[in-house]
């Protein structure tokens, strides 16, 4: 498990700045509705890896869900 910190952490969440109180990816995800998939700094993060991910300041997190497409 990644280390938990109490300091505020500024990241990019879906293109917008976000101040987090935890660096744990898994603590951020419950606000999103399934199904979703995650990329961190442009790289895919498999669901099985979520508990191991500690976020750092300036990280770019993308959380995507199904939409219509052609």
């Amino acid at each position: 498990m990644a280390e938990v910190t109490d300091t505020t952490l500024n990241i990019w969440l879906n293109g917008k700045t976000e101040a987090l109180t935890s660096n744990q990816l898994s603590e951020l995800l419950p606000r999103f509705k399934a199904p979703f998939a995650v990329a961190l700094n442009g790289r895919f993060i498999a669901a099985a890896q979520y508990p191991d991910i500690a976020l750092k300041a300036g990280d770019q997190l993308d959380i995507v869900s199904p939409i219509a497409g052609g």
Partner: peptide, 19 residues
Amino acid sequence: VTLSLRRQAPEQQGGEQFW
């Protein structure tokens, strides 16, 4: 059928209905 992925925006409704 083709479909895609985009950033989830909880404030926007309709994504779940589509899925």
